[in-house]
Design a protein around this nucleic acid. Structure first.
Length: 578
RNA sequence: CGGGGUGUAGCGCAGUUGGUAGCGUGCUUGGUUCGGGACCAAGAGGCCCCGGGUUCGAAUCCCGGCACUCCGACCA
């Protein structure tokens, strides 16, 4: 491609809307353009890079035995009503009506559609397993789109669904996809980590997220260098510490004026925060989210943080159905007092106690009375929980739940997730098969997603410097940039054109910068665009030489055009061989 | 959904006490340049987000929308 002919518009200045590197650079290189908040179009360079990521995904899915199909983004409401998610999905689902008033959604995901398609053909165990995938546009009306392609409202996702006759089959399919995902992200040049993830109400060890490690990531990861444990902060288990077994002292109410926070109470009473109990108050809503149907008080040790996901799982409620409480309203029903709520004396609400507190002796807790706390509070004797569960967040420095060594934390961008669905969709949607004995069983499903557009952003996020993008060879829009400095110098032109032709003939993707621009402009753009190989035709041309340089760094080599062509072809072919 | 911020030329921004708009960059033309975003000169380019109101007069003040954005909540 000749740069003079390209639909290529780079920006000198940083668009004010962009904050992070991938967003800034994708906009500045002209790879993407914004249409609306969280809605982007792909320009030629962006489209080419996107295609490369898709092709890697496609190759690895095919190699893993999945078959590609393509389903509509537009989905009838009936399917979602059947699975029960039409109501449950919430405001993130983009709902539309046709001219006759029939309801549809723009699919945020495709479990229902795939389940429906497969049930039309699958009757027998002989037809299983099946694994189907698509690379397709998804729609989620995010509350807050941000970071360009990382959290957008329209995005491209590879999603696939496995269908097996039993749990053993699912385990095999799951492992197969897990391995395929590792290959995909390896080939994309990402520094990533598979981590255990929350699998919500379905439970079990049924989900992993693939996180591209980087500071701007929205995912918090907890990991252990010692034993290899890695999980999202939502998922990470907390192995309760052994508490000192002291004798239970008599319960006592003390005056603690104006001490609303844990810090204030503990300072006032001169006790460490790990000897205090923190209360968190919530309202529970009905399915329509219109009315408060009850209250929840969650208690954790004063120095811990609540893990909302664990609390929701312990309660078995929908995440939308719980919210921080209006303390005034709650006080009338339960006796809770903001800043002074404790488990003793609380009534008419569900009490969830963190498992760690069961063996914690002589704790400080609110007295459910303004300006008062209780001391020497003990579980069993003074209060009990309706639910006792691990509801706290594992944080950096806490002991690893597997080996006990202090864990570390990191941030990442979730680029993929693998998930065991079991029979969550096959049962309500009647996707069944008959076994050898004519017995009917629900199909056992798994679902697997890769955020393709998000992966592209994550690659840029990990591969750039102050001057621009540094594309990995596997996904770069073009392999080589030939910078022709003097477009009116016959020697330079002939040399550049000859290399351009030879590289094209060898199947190398190359841009010849033949624009009528000063060399400085071309150098800046070459760095910004970030193709891996740079060949500069300039002042050394008279001596029959060009400059050969890799965008990622290293020395400039002054060599003949033939050598430069040879080196470029070798490097590109090395990448193609893997 | 709560709390901030911003909407002025393609992009980045200024615009004072209210008097019908400017800078940088990019674009066009001519000239001089030509290895890290050149210089000089001449141009083109505006529903000052939208709708009301106050005023002789509104980019500017007031009210109401909308959009974008940041922090948080939320995120199969």
């Amino acid at each position: 491609m000749r740069a003079s002919q390209m639909y290529l518009y780079t920006l000198r200045e940083v668009p004010s809307e962009a904050e992070i590197a991938s967003h800034i650079l994708l906009l500045r290189t002209g790879a993407i353009r914004k249409l609306a908040s969280g809605v982007y179009g792909f320009m030629p360079l962006g489209q080419r890079a996107l295609r490369k990521v898709e092709d890697i995904v496609r190759q690895e899915m095919d190699a893993a035995g999945a078959q590609e199909i393509h389903m509509s983004a537009l989905q009838p409401a009936e399917l979602w009503q059947e699975s029960g998610r039409w109501a449950a999905y919430g405001p993130e689902m983009w709902r539309v009506k046709d001219r006759n008033g029939r309801e549809f959604c723009l699919g945020p995901t495709h479990e229902e559609v795939f389940t429906d398609i497969v049930r039309q053909n699958i009757d027998s165990y002989r037809q299983l397993p099946v694994n189907l995938y698509q690379i397709q546009t998804k729609y989620r009306d995010e509350a807050r789109p941000r970071f360009g392609l990382i959290r957008s409202r329209e995005f491209i996702m590879k999603d696939n669904y496995s269908f097996d006759k039993d749990e053993e089959g699912l385990d095999i399919s799951y492992k197969n996809m897990y391995d395929a995902y590792s290959k995909v992200f390896d080939r994309c040049g990402l520094n990533y980590r598979p981590v255990e993830a929350d699998s919500g109400a379905i439970g079990g060890s049924g989900s992993h997220e693939f996180c591209a490690l980087c500071e701007v990531g929205e995912e918090e990861i907890i990991y252990c260098d010692e034993c290899g444990m890695a999980a999202t902060d939502e998922r990470a288990e907390f192995k309760d510490a052994v508490m000192p077994q002291e004798a239970e002292l008599p319960l006592e109410k003390v005056h603690t004026p104006g001490t609303k926070t844990i810090e204030e109470v503990c300072d006032f009473l001169k006790v460490p925060q790990d000897k205090s109990i923190k209360a968190l108050l919530f309202e529970l809503y009905n399915d329509e989210l219109t009315d408060v149907i009850g209250y929840v008080a969650a208690f954790i040790r004063g120095d811990r943080q609540l893990n909302m996901t664990k609390l929701v799982n312990a309660l078995g409620c929908h995440e939308y159905a719980i919210a921080f409480a209006n303390e005034g309203a709650m006080h009338g029903v339960t006796g809770a007092v903001g800043g002074f709520t404790g488990p003793v004396g609380l009534h008419d609400c569900k009490i969830v106690v963190d498992s760690e507190l069961v063996n914690a002796k002589n704790m400080v807790a609110g007295a459910c009375e303004e300006d008062h706390h209780m001391i020497n509070v003990n579980y069993g004797r003074d209060y009990k929980g309706d639910i006792v569960a691990d509801i706290k967040l594992l944080q950096a420095g806490d002991p690893c739940p597997v080996c006990g060594k202090p864990v570390k934390n990191a941030r990442g961008i979730e680029v993929g997730q693998v998930f065991k669905l079991h029979t969550k969709y096959s049962e309500p949607m009647h996707l069944t098969f008959k076994d050898e004995n004519q017995q009917e069983h629900p199909v056992v499903m798994g679902c697997y997603g890769i955020g393709v557009t998000r992966t592209l952003a994550a690659i840029v996020e990990q591969h750039h410097d102050d001057n621009g993008i540094i594309w990995p060879m596997s996904v770069t829009p073009y392999h080589v940039m030939i910078t022709l400095c003097g477009i009116k110098d016959d020697v330079q032109v002939a040399m550049a054109e000859d290399m351009y032709k030879k590289l094209l003939d060898a199947g190398v993707e190359v841009v010849l910068d033949d624009r009528d621009e000063r060399p400085g402009v071309k150098f800046k753009d070459a760095d910004l665009l970030g193709f891996p190989i740079r060949i500069t035709v300039g002042k050394k041309a008279a001596e029959g030489q060009v400059e050969y340089k890799l965008r990622r760094g290293g020395d400039v080599e002054v060599i003949t055009p033939a050598e430069a062509v040879e080196k470029a072809i070798a490097l590109v072919n090395a990448e193609r061989r893997g």
